[in-house]
Design a protein around this nucleic acid. Structure first.
Lengths: 107, 107
DNA sequence: GCATATATCTCACATTGTGGTACTAATATA
DNA sequence: TATATTAGTACCACAATGTGAGATATATGC
């Protein structure tokens, strides 16, 4: 369709917003798992991030090594303008379909 | 993943709730187009309804012919218990990821 | 019967979602 | 130096969802 996000894409972009400067694969996954109870495979996260980067929805930057017992460098992600727009459109669409419905149906 | 709905599936189930007794392919499509501005091909609607019926999310019943200049019988759909549950889970997941974020990011 | 209106069905292809496995790059310890 | 350990990312095949074009069906009006 262009312009509208899939369900998992939404969760990832929302995680970026929540995490701010600290958004990278592992923290994104943890944020979604903690807040939604859904269990998320780390592979899906990277795949989806990579696809959204190609579409211009997110941008990434490799971080510096941190002194916490080694490990590969983090790849930090942040929301790009196109991603913010797509997110807004998508949230608005669902919200407009929800408006006026009885709360017990929609909570 | 099971238990969580795709984006378009959500819109269709919400349309069922909005339309009540009058939910059938054409009216579902119209409701989504009018409220979201998104344009929806009628084929997607039927395909998605049929898949959700197989999963037990919706049920259908063939209507009687109506006297409005002919036409094929309508197939009315309504939300089943499993669909209501999946819808709630999905909406809740997005809502929990949205909570506390600045409104301008999330509206 | 034939025309026309309303509606559904089918199907191939595109996009998104998923999770297992492999790989890479850092520090620690010796 | 090298080996172990930890943290993190990349890859990839397959499944589920999304999409749209075109075909088909069933009603009424004449």
């Amino acid at each position: 369709m262009g312009q509208f996000l899939g369900e998992f894409e939404q969760l990832i972009l929302l995680a970026l917003l929540r995490l701010g400067e600290d958004a990278y694969g592992v923290s994104i996954r943890a944020e979604i798992e903690q807040r939604t109870g859904r269990d998320v495979s780390i592979g899906s996260v990277y795949t989806t991030l990579e696809r959204m980067e190609r579409k211009g929805y997110v941008r990434s930057a490799i971080g510096q090594p941190t002194p916490e017992r080694g490990g590969r460098r983090k790849k930090y992600y942040h929301l790009a303008a196109g991603g913010q727009a797509a997110l807004s459109h998508t949230l608005r669409a669902v919200r407009s379909m929800t408006e006026g419905l009885a709360p017990e149906l929609v909570e």
